[in-house]
């Protein structure tokens, strides 16, 4: 019992020490620009609906950021998963594309920024679709093509690589045993390859979403952006609101962890067999 209590408290120890140290340092430095006290951040986080330095609310900015990330990410998933599965299954396609895609893989998403700006400028989904000015225009104008591209390119490679890997490492015997039962190519694809590869694919989706979320700040630093957590952070820095910077960082961390937790939950529930059958 005592042991259990201790092991439950152990993960809380480091954060508690960290916050204590923070409080101490903030008091010692006594400069809000360098390190604002903890309670100031908590106050900001406790009122996410409050209008901050005329840039909208914390909650609203998080919402806009999430829509951006999810749009770019959805694009990466729609292209990455089918392409990855096809590349994993057809050796010819793999040979054709693997080295080519490998050239782009090491490029950090941020390094694309200048090129992306040259291509897309401040064009958004709204200008692309030629929407009339109105509420819908306002929302879609927040989805700049340049941002979507940065997020897309960040999420694409983890999703693609895991899909290729998942399909390529499917046990040959499983495929053979379905073939001797009379399975067609379609059966093998739907009944063997996809289920067998799905733990790896879902793991790629999870990593991809994490990366997409991390590309957020760089994407929201692009010109034309007037909202989003990334923008909030950089703008707050220029007006000397370090407390808003930190509150934004904490929000990014919290949302990222939440998204990741969702995927972990799916993995635990649906893919227990993967762990257990090794």
């Amino acid at each position: 019992m005592q042991h259990k209590l201790l092991s439950l408290c152990l993960p809380l120890l480091a954060p508690c020490l960290f916050f204590l140290f923070w409080e101490y340092a903030a008091t010692a430095i006594d400069n809000e620009l360098i390190l604002p006290p903890l309670e100031q951040i908590i106050a900001l986080l406790a009122h996410p609906g409050e209008n901050l330095i005329s840039m909208g609310t914390l909650a609203g900015n998080i919402g806009i950021s999430m829509v951006r990330v999810l749009s770019g990410y959805a694009l990466a998933v729609m292209i990455g998963v089918p392409l990855g599965v096809a590349m994993g299954y057809y050796g010819g396609l793999f040979r054709l594309l693997n080295a080519f895609l490998g050239m782009f893989r090491p490029i950090p998403p941020l390094a694309w920024v200048p090129l992306v700006l040259a291509w897309f400028g401040v064009a958004s989904l709204a200008t692309l679709a030629n929407l009339p000015r109105g509420e819908l225009y306002f929302y879609c104008n927040n989805l700049k093509l340049s941002m979507l591209f940065i997020i897309f390119i960040g999420a694409l490679f983890p999703v693609l690589t895991s899909s290729v890997h998942g399909v390529r490492t499917v046990n040959r015997t499983l495929i053979d045993s379905a073939r001797v039962l009379g399975a067609t190519e379609k059966d093998i694809f739907l009944k063997i390859l996809l289920p067998a590869a799905s733990p790896s694919i879902v793991n790629g989706l999870r990593i991809g979403l994490g990366v997409a979320w991390m590309c957020l700040v760089s994407a929201e630093m692009l010109p034309g952006s007037l909202s989003g957590v990334g923008y909030l952070i950089t703008h707050a820095y220029t007006v000397g609101r370090t407390d808003v910077v930190i509150a934004g960082m904490i929000s990014i961390s919290a949302v990222g962890a939440l998204l990741d937790f969702g995927f972990q939950w799916i993995e635990k529930r649906k893919y227990a067999w993967k762990q257990l059958s090794r």
Partner: peptide
């Protein structure tokens, strides 16, 4: 491969994400 010629492999031939029942009925399912 054809249905008339069945085969049993050395190991790891069961689909690990399916129950025993759904493994056995894979042939009829196909």
């Amino acid at each position: 491969p054809r249905r008339e010629i069945g085969m049993v492999f050395q190991e790891y031939s069961l689909l690990p994400w399916r129950t025993v029942r759904d493994n056995v009925s894979l042939g009829p399912e196909i």
